[in-house]
Nucleic acid binder design. Structure first.
Length: 267
DNA sequence: TTCCAGGGATATA
DNA sequence: TATATCCATGGA
């Protein structure tokens, strides 16, 4: 499925759809220049390009990105499992091996606090400016707690500045994030939602994109518009989909979300 | 120029 | 518990 060398990972393209994986909205720290993606996560960096049937991930952090892309998971088996749900077929066929990433926990918390009522280009810009304050490395809770709310305002966080600052302080001063890691999924969500700026949707994104809790189904505005039945509430929709897709709910959600993004682009 | 964005907090009934 | 309103900003 993949092999590692010093400075690079080579993956079968059938096992990693780079475009879908990076552009499906789970990650904000990437850019694409002439078919080459530059990805940053934590303090790590990689250049990624697809040639023929192979994807090359050039990085000094080989072990980090093997885990980041969860390369030991057989995503095509996941797609086969999901293909028994007829309503997912067009979404599954719209891309190759879209993989759910394993991103750093605190970085994902702050990134999705920033994502609230915001658009992806601006989310990316804000996160880039935040990291640029720290030599292009995503800051620790302590580093953000040492900033001022005004400094967060200055990089365009808007009304989220106070949430980011307060959440960073809590993460710096308590063991909340360790408790989140140790907790089972529903309790982990409740713990995350004690952070200001974190509601159900942000908590679900954090659990899915950082902790690999594949049984959650984040319900955002697009999912709500696309999938709600009748007068179904957001909570009812989330429960229905989590029950239907079980341990594959997160993957089902990502394929549906990415497919809806493709359709939106075309219109 | 206007609209709106991978929502959440708060007030009100 | 359920619904309405406000929130800063800038990309499109």
């Amino acid at each position: 499925m993949y092999k590692t060398e010093a400075g690079s990972i080579v993956v079968d393209a059938a096992n990693l759809d780079v475009k879908a994986t990076l552009e499906c909205g789970q990650l904000f720290r990437f850019e694409k220049i002439d078919e080459v993606y530059t990805v940053k996560s934590g303090a790590h960096k990689a250049k990624i390009y697809t040639v023929g049937n192979y994807v090359t991930i050039e990085t000094a952090s080989v072990d980090y990105f093997v885990n980041f892309f969860n390369l030991d998971r057989d995503v095509n088996r996941t797609k086969r499992e999901l293909s028994r749900f007829p309503e997912l077929c067009s979404a599954l066929d719209s891309c190759g091996a879209l993989r759910i990433l394993r991103q750093p926990l605190f970085e994902t918390v702050i990134s999705f606090i920033i994502s609230a009522n915001n658009n992806i280009p601006r989310i990316k810009n804000i996160i880039n400016r935040l990291c640029s304050l720290f030599d292009d490395v995503f800051p620790t809770p302590e580093q953000i707690a040492d900033l001022s709310v005004r400094q967060l305002d200055a990089i365009g966080c808007g009304y989220r500045s106070q949430y980011i600052y307060d959440s960073a302080r809590i993460c710096a001063e308590t063991d909340l994030l360790n408790r989140v890691c140790a907790a089972k999924t529903p309790d982990a969500g409740k713990l995350l939602m004690t952070l200001p700026g974190v509601g159900q949707k942000v908590a679900d994104c954090v659990m899915l994109f950082a902790l690999g809790r594949l049984d959650v189904f984040p319900v955002d505005t697009w999912i709500l518009r696309t999938l709600r039945q009748g007068m179904e509430t957001e909570v009812q929709l989330r429960n229905r989909l989590m029950t239907r897709y079980g341990d594959y709910a997160g993957y089902a959600q990502q394929y549906l979300y990415y497919y809806s993004a493709i359709l939106r682009e075309k219109s």
